[in-house]
Design a protein around this nucleic acid. Structure first.
Lengths: 157, 157
DNA sequence: AGGGGAAGTGTTATACTATATCATCCGCTG
DNA sequence: CAGCGGATGATATAGTATAACACTTCCCCT
């Protein structure tokens, strides 16, 4: 999800899958059955899932999967930008803007566990200026925040 | 370390320990032997260590420690701001600016594994503006970047 | 069509990270 | 010195991730 507002969920699943298909085709890569199913599970659940949550769902569908299958699929999907890893949760979430070049930031609600993906430009942010100041060559960034989303903020109060 | 340059290491250990002592005293908390030793180990090693690395060092000193001891000490030190957790590494590093109010960012060298702590003001950065834009109440932030530090950058080239 | 290499998957085992639980100890306060 | 709360000891287990090797499938090339 991009922010904490409701949206057309079926539509976002379909377009994300289509974007993944296209991205793979364009790069000569294969969106195999296992990879596609893992991506679908993340899209359908629409939240951050641990690798073993994904594994459980695969097994619930009758697929006798093992951890390496899931981690390989996730590694692939993350490398291609179709899925993001949330470090604070040791979890994975489907990308909300597949196809777009981006290094996202995440807002994680500690009450409802929703994760919103925000577009940012890390090169131009604080990490970028810190890196330039010391001569550090930036290759990958993690920007995550935990707190209360607008919905839970009201509910708690 | 604050950046990737050499510095007075003995001095930084002593001042960090002193700051921790003072901080605990000021807040009516106890810097117990276990907590102090864990902090010293992180300061001496001067890099990010996993909880089990710390555990190994405690045991190497003849202390028959178990994982919960280390995690409890680390939780305390992190809560007090004397140690920071590096999410990308599942590791811990002694704070380079103890006492100062700060929400740090980290630059992690993938070659030499050095971790530099950079001062930033997250409320004013991209995460802060993203949070304000959606009504998200920011409580804790993680800003980490991986890449090549100035030293390794030269060595590889 | 068939050879052959690269990429992907199956399978087993294991390494690494973290916490639950309950008993015991220690230090302070009244 | 009794009692309380925080800290530690100890055992067990939960949760996350990868190593290693065998096998298959896809695809390209001839």
């Amino acid at each position: 999800m991009i922010d904490f507002a409701p949206h057309d969920h079926d539509g976002c699943i379909a377009s994300a899958l289509a974007a993944a298909e296209e991205g793979c085709a364009a790069r000569g890569l294969r969106l195999t059955d296992a990879r596609r199913r893992v991506l679908e599970i993340l899209l359908e659940s629409h939240r951050a899932l641990g690798a073993y949550d994904v594994l459980d769902r695969l097994r619930a569908e009758g697929r006798p999967a093992q951890p390496p299958l899931v981690y390989r699929a996730l590694d692939f999907l993350v490398a291609q930008g179709f899925v993001h890893r949330i470090e604070r949760l040791n979890a994975f979430v489907a990308c909300a803007r597949p196809g777009a070049e981006h290094a996202p930031a995440f807002l994680i609600c500690r009450a409802c566990e929703a994760v919103a993906e925000m577009p940012v430009a890390p090169e131009e942010g604080r990490l970028g200026s810190a890196a330039r100041a010391t001569g550090f060559a930036l290759e990958a960034t993690t920007l995550e925040a935990e707190g209360l989303c607008p919905n839970c903020r009201g509910a708690v109060a």
